[in-house]
């Protein structure tokens, strides 16, 4: 049982992901743009953040991750990506992309739960 923040501009993805996480006993808070996302993270202090790469702008997710880390918030971040792999861009977690794990859309419930749980265990 953990508090998980989902930040994605696609309400359908938020809905589907929330349901998967709730079925596994987690509590979910959501935001649909980087500004609201930052607010949710600082105010509610979730145990895990799920963040979409592309929101208003192609790199919004990255910038938000960097902003969160600048605030010394070390909450694990799971990043949703969509077309990066197909286009041959492999992101690696690092200083530029300060996230802990990636998951490619569309998300299979099993994979999402497995990645979320392994990140929560490490914490």
């Amino acid at each position: 049982m953990a508090l998980i923040a989902i930040i994605d501009d696609d309400p359908d993805i938020i809905e589907a992901s929330s349901l998967v996480l709730k079925s596994n006993g987690h509590e979910v808070i959501t935001a649909s743009n980087p500004d609201d996302g930052f607010k949710v993270v600082t105010e509610k202090n979730p145990d895990l953040i799920i963040l979409d790469v592309m929101m208003d702008e192609p790199d919004d997710g990255f910038f938000l991750a960097q902003k969160i880390r600048k605030e010394k918030i070390e909450t694990p971040i799971l990043m949703y990506t969509s077309v990066s792999k197909t286009l041959g861009f492999e992101y690696g977690a690092g200083e530029m992309v300060p996230v802990n794990e990636f998951v490619e859309k569309p998300i299979s419930p099993d994979e999402l739960i497995q990645k979320v749980n392994s990140l929560l265990e490490k914490k």
């Binding site: 993805i13 589907a16 859309k105 569309p106 419930p109």
Partner: peptide, 8 residues
Amino acid sequence: AAVQGFLT
């Protein structure tokens, strides 16, 4: 991705 999410 959204449709796939709902269907799964």
